[in-house]
Design a protein around this nucleic acid. Sequence first.
DNA 1: CTGAAAGCGCTTACAG
DNA 2: CTGAAAGCGCTTACAG
Lengths: 325, 325
Amino acid sequence: MDDVAHAAGVSRGTVSRALNGGRNVSGAAQAAIDKAVRQTGYVVNPHARSLATQRAMSVAFVLSEPQDRLFEDPNFHLLLHGCTQALADNDVTVLLTLAGTSEERKRVSRFVTAGHADGVLLVSTHRGDPIVDELLAQDVPVVVCGRPLGHERDVSYVAADDRDGARQMVTYLRSQGYRRIGVVTGPPDTPGGVDRLAGYRDVLGDVPESLVVSGDYTQASGEAALHRLLAQASDVDAVFVASDLMAAGALAALRRTGRRVPEDVAVAGFDDSRIAAACHPPLTTIRQPWARISTEMARLLLRLVEGDENAAVILPTELVIRESA
Amino acid sequence: MDDVAHAAGVSRGTVSRALNGGRNVSGAAQAAIDKAVRQTGYVVNPHARSLATQRAMSVAFVLSEPQDRLFEDPNFHLLLHGCTQALADNDVTVLLTLAGTSEERKRVSRFVTAGHADGVLLVSTHRGDPIVDELLAQDVPVVVCGRPLGHERDVSYVAADDRDGARQMVTYLRSQGYRRIGVVTGPPDTPGGVDRLAGYRDVLGDVPESLVVSGDYTQASGEAALHRLLAQASDVDAVFVASDLMAAGALAALRRTGRRVPEDVAVAGFDDSRIAAACHPPLTTIRQPWARISTEMARLLLRLVEGDENAAVILPTELVIRESA
DNA sequence: CTGAAAGCGCTTACAG
DNA sequence: CTGAAAGCGCTTACAG
């Protein structure tokens, strides 16, 4: 930086100002400095800057899932890239971190509290995940992706309106004339598990328990769930499945039992993930606004780091009609 | 740190020494400092430390794959976790970074050259990936996972002995009495694509071109490749497939054409990835030593950062016999 | 608009 | 074995 100041014929202070937005810098000085930077190939030392500003200029994107299951989810990539992009615009780097084991969680906590990151973008789907409490206890700015069950009041989050999405879908199924509509829910300790079932009930009211089965978001669980459903309620004419991956399993189960989709049983998914359009038949589903979710998460986290209060953002979902229902 | 020094009744210099290995620190001082650290809840500021030591104490784990395909590969997780673990033992943090687009590559380069990371662990499978040159041009310490085609002499790497693995497998197939052994190769611009084919040829010599087909490591490509192979050489009695995922596709193709495995056609894979044992029938395959690969990558990178010369490490593979061949 | 100076929190020869 | 001091490379009131 001294070299740059020398080459530009100004002081280091002026160079620093020019580099940081250029407030209170004359056009001539700015130009000379820009040129000097180019000539010397200067690049700021982030550690020195962080030491002076008390800001790491980076945030941790923490994936708190024991099985790394989300890694295989195309939606996860959308989210990660979206956040990276949105934060890059503010010159903050996203550091991806896996925190599946309690040891890894410790490492993440230390990492952030030591000052390596200014905040955390957290993907954690299960109620009672200890990392939420750990981070909160340390006063780390954090924004969660999806409704953080049990922590709605004390942590910021961005979520799609799962409940309304489910409502839209079930309402649509009814409008198509389906009358015995079953549901395959997600795990009851995840927001997608409870909210999508709630939306289904909002529309259908008290349904017989035989119409409700649940899975764990995997394709295999969707297939198994559908076999159970058919055994309990052989006359279902439609089924709302709480994720596209499970819906793919459901399609397989129906095919195996010789039922046509949608003629014999209609199938509706949730997510509009990459596989939705590739299914046979292509899935009618609910699109989650991943791009907006990621930009909102980034925005919220930046605000929190600046000292703003917590906030929750709920984003609308959209019905996507294809051929399965 | 001043607080700690105060509480322990020593100088900051002594505290620093105690924190960094305790050389030249008396037992009494060490004890007092340990206690003070605990009482005050002190944790070092990594930026200040890095500024003073000129070391980031972190390395970037860069995934240079346009499609993020490796994310879905269970082997990738083994590798990532292995490196993280090995480096954590040396107090260095692993920063996972995606560099699929040229814009993201730029970001990674800047990130590292700015001093955020001391080096990079690079997963890049395709010949001619520009990131290798970019990193090398900046004199960044880097160790590549797998043989870096065209860069064997100027960059460090750790790889499984693909060629020998292929040799072992084909030799085994011969010993089982198979005589018309086809091969499904990987893409010719990847080390797995060229080396596994080379190993196959080492054992079989000049084979008719009709016995050689290729895929792109996806399951669908393996299925398609096998259909081509059967069309060209309907009398094959065994096929060596260059990855387990493609082998799964091959099994599907054989099933579809009514051939039994291994009675009609034997199938051998490569990788021993998670799906190998789950296939029907379970795959005979070649195990890659992922745990050792990751520890060797970590070790090599640490050495490079210390100023050591480049080095290549080739690790042996192991034949795993199951039921498909 | 600009420069001199203090400060961010650590490490590490150096002298003792 | 220990302390005083310089230095790592930046930012930012402050005075002009």
